[in-house]
């Protein structure tokens, strides 16, 4: 849009876009608002908007009754751990494919992508069996490993597309300047790749945090993360709107904040670099 739009058009655009934006955001906003209401105000008809006695009671009750912090801790461990483990494996792999490509690089990348397409339900029972056999059912380590695997292709891909943007000549220059493989990675590649690595970490924490097939099916009480915690509100507690809202708000708040930082990376990560 090279030309300045007329002010009038801009006003119309703005009003319309804000309306649509607020409409889409409304369920989230309503949940957050409700979490500060009493149960009675929460179901009042007509609904109460902003003018009610704001209370933090729901948060306290949710924490006390269902031990929110334990689930939160599980989520953090599982999302963080799977991302960390995944990066340990993905960074070298992406490095080698981006900077020392071979004839098979493309096939390997596409194959990795195809493992991501495997429908989880198709391998549910085998994984379940393996978990029982190795005593991994309802453990954080088990879930961490599974989520690491399901996100590994995305990590490799994202890193690959970022690394690809670093000109190979710079690494060659480092080699000419006397850097060995270790120095090359430490002093040249890593600092240049930090933004890409950070975005990859961010997106994968988000994806792991919100994952809701394996977390529901492979955990019971001990290792259940927030996705399972919320699912347990299904009923009858779900009818206590204020508490449900407080629990929901706590489950999504961390990731909403992270998510807002990662909009751009989201596109690249989820389209495997096909849209930038």
């Amino acid at each position: 849009m090279a030309r300045a739009a007329t002010t009038q058009r801009k006003i119309i655009n703005t009003a319309f876009a804000w309306m649509v934006g607020l409409l889409i955001f409304f369920p989230i906003m309503w949940t957050i608002l409700t979490s500060f209401k009493t149960e009675a105000t929460a179901i009042a008809d007509p609904p109460v908007w902003f003018f009610f006695d704001w209370t933090l009671d729901n948060y306290r009750v949710v924490q006390e009754r269902s031990d929110y912090s334990r689930f939160l801790w599980n989520s953090i461990i599982i999302a963080g751990g799977s991302t960390f483990l995944g990066m340990l494996i993905a960074i070298p792999a992406a490095w080698s494919m981006a900077f020392v490509p071979s004839k098979r690089t493309k096939d390997i990348l596409l194959w990795m992508l195809s493992t991501k397409m495997l429908p989880a339900v198709g391998v549910l029972y085998p994984i379940y069996l393996i978990f029982i056999k190795f005593g991994l059912l309802d453990t954080r380590i088990g879930l961490t490993i599974v989520l690491m695997f399901i996100n590994l292709p995305i990590m490799v891909w994202m890193l690959y597309t970022y690394f690809k943007e670093i000109p190979g000549e710079i690494l060659e220059a480092a080699r000419m300047d006397g850097a060995g493989l270790r120095e090359e990675i430490l002093y040249v590649l890593t600092p240049m790749a930090i933004p890409g690595i950070a975005s990859t970490v961010l997106l994968n924490v988000i994806l792991a945090w919100n994952e809701a097939f394996w977390t529901l099916n492979l955990t019971a009480a001990k290792a259940a993360p927030l996705t399972a915690f919320i699912a347990s509100y299904s009923s009858p507690e779900g009818l206590f709107y204020a508490k449900l809202s407080a629990a929901s708000t706590m489950a999504i708040a961390p990731i909403l904040i992270l998510g807002w930082f990662s909009q751009k990376q989201l596109v690249r990560g989820l389209t495997f670099g096909a849209v930038k």
Binding site: V20, F25, P27, W209, N210, A231, S248, G259
Partner: peptide, 17 residues
């Protein structure tokens, strides 16, 4: 940001809400 936000809501939360 308003438009994108729902994507970051975990599926169990959005379904339940």
């Amino acid at each position: 940001i308003l438009v994108i936000a729902p994507f970051f809501v975990m599926p169990t939360v959005s379904a339940l809400v």
